[in-house]
C-alpha cells in the first residue's frame, strides 16, 4: 500500500504536480468560501472563463501569460460591476454576457495563435498539471502566500463585510476596497489554478469544497479549514487516480471533490438528507 503511494513520487513531474494540486486545493477552498457565502459562485466562473483573451494577448506580446490572464480576469469583473451599476441589467445577466464574450474572444485568439505557435488551447481549458514547471510551482506558491496572508490578516474585517456589508460600511470599514480586493483574490486564485484544472473546471474547486464543509461545520473559518482539507485530499487522491488509471488529472480531482460533496449532502450530521429528516431548515 505504501509502495503505491510512494512510487509516483520518484518522478519529478509527479512531485511538482502534486505540490501544485495541494496548493490549489487550499487556496481555492479558502477564497471559494467567500464566494459561496456572498452568493457569488457565478462570479468565480465568470472570472475564470474571462482569463483566456488576456492570456492570448500576453503570449503574442511576449509578456508573462499569467499576468495577462490576471489582468483580463480583473477587467471582466470591473466590466460586470459597471454594467450592473450603470444599467438596469441584473448582475447574473451581466456576468453571463461578459464571460461568454471574453471566452469567445479568448478561444478565437488562441485558436488563431496556435496555428503557428506551440500553445495548446486544451491546456488552458482543462489544465495540464503534469506539465507544470519548477517556475510555475514557485509562482503558484507566491500567489498562495499572498492570498492566505490577506485572508488571515483581514479575517475579522472580511467576516463582517461578507456577512453584513451594510453594517460593516456603517462602521466606516472600506467595503468598496474589500469588494475589489475579493475580486483580485478570486482572479489570482483562478490564475494559479489554471494549470491544474483549467478554466472550465476551476469553479468546482472554488465552490464544492466550501459547500461540502458548510454542510459539516458552523463557522466561516471552520468552513475554510475543513474545505481546504477536502481540497487537499481531493487533489492528492485525484492525482493518484489519474496516475494509476491513466485518467485526465483535472477531471479526476473534480470528480473526487464532487463525490465528497454528495456524501456530505446525504450523511452530514446536521443537514444530511438521510441522517436528518428535517433537513430543510433556516429561513432562506
Amino acid at each position: 500500500m505504501l509502495d503505491l503511494l510512494i512510487e509516483p513520487l520518484q518522478y519529478g513531474f509527479m512531485q511538482r504536480s502534486l505540490l501544485v494540486a495541494i496548493i490549489v486545493g487550499i487556496i481555492c477552498s479558502v477564497v471559494g468560501s467567500y464566494l459561496m457565502v456572498r452568493r457569488l459562485a457565478l462570479l468565480g466562473d465568470a472570472i475564470s472563463h474571462s482569463l483566456l483573451p488576456g492570456l492570448a494577448i500576453a503570449f503574442v506580446l511576449g509578456m508573462n501569460i499569467y499576468l495577462g490572464a490576471f489582468i483580463a480576469g480583473v477587467i471582466s469583473a470591473v466590466i460586470i460591476g459597471w454594467i450592473h451599476t450603470r444599467s438596469p441589467i441584473k448582475e447574473d445577466a451581466a456576468m453571463g454576457i461578459v464571460f461568454s464574450a471574453f471566452f469567445a474572444l479568448g478561444i478565437t485568439l488562441i485558436t488563431t495563435i496556435q496555428k503557428s505557435n506551440k500553445i495548446d488551447l486544451n491546456h488552458f481549458l482543462f489544465g495540464n498539471i503534469l506539465g507544470v514547471t519548477g517556475a510555475e510551482v514557485r509562482d503558484t506558491a507566491i500567489i498562495a502566500v499572498l492570498v492566505l496572508l490577506t485572508v488571515i490578516l483581514l479575517y475579522k474585517e472580511l467576516l463582517f463585510y461578507s456577512f453584513d456589508p451594510l453594517g460593516a460600511q456603517a462602521t466606516g470599514l472600506p467595503v468598496q476596497v474589500f469588494n475589489s480586493g475579493l475580486m483580485i483574490l478570486v482572479a489570482l486564485t483562478v490564475v494559479a489554478s489554471m494549470k491544474a484544472v483549467g478554466v472550465i473546471l476551476v469553479l468546482s474547486l472554488l465552490i464544492t469544497p466550501a459547500a461540502t464543509a458548510y454542510l459539516l461545520v458552523p463557522r466561516l473559518h471552520q468552513v475554510m479549514l475543513v474545505g481546504a482539507g477536502m481540497g487537499v485530499f481531493s487533489s492528492i487522491s485525484g492525482m493518484y487516480l489519474s496516475y494509476y488509471y491513466n485518467l485526465p488529472s483535472g477531471p479526476a480531482i473534480v470528480l473526487v471533490v464532487s463525490i465528497l460533496f454528495f456524501l456530505a449532502l446525504l450523511f452530514s450530521p446536521s443537514y444530511g438528507i438521510l441522517t436528518h429528516s428535517k433537513a430543510i431548515v433556516e429561513d432562506k
Binding site: 457565502v37 452568493r39 467576516l159 456577512f163 453584513d164 451594510l166 458552523p218 463557522r219 432562506k284
Partner: peptide, 9 residues
C-alpha cells in the same frame, strides 16, 4: 437584508 444561512455563530 441578512443572509441567515451564513456560517456564523
Amino acid at each position: 437584508q441578512i443572509d441567515w444561512t451564513f456560517p456564523a455563530t
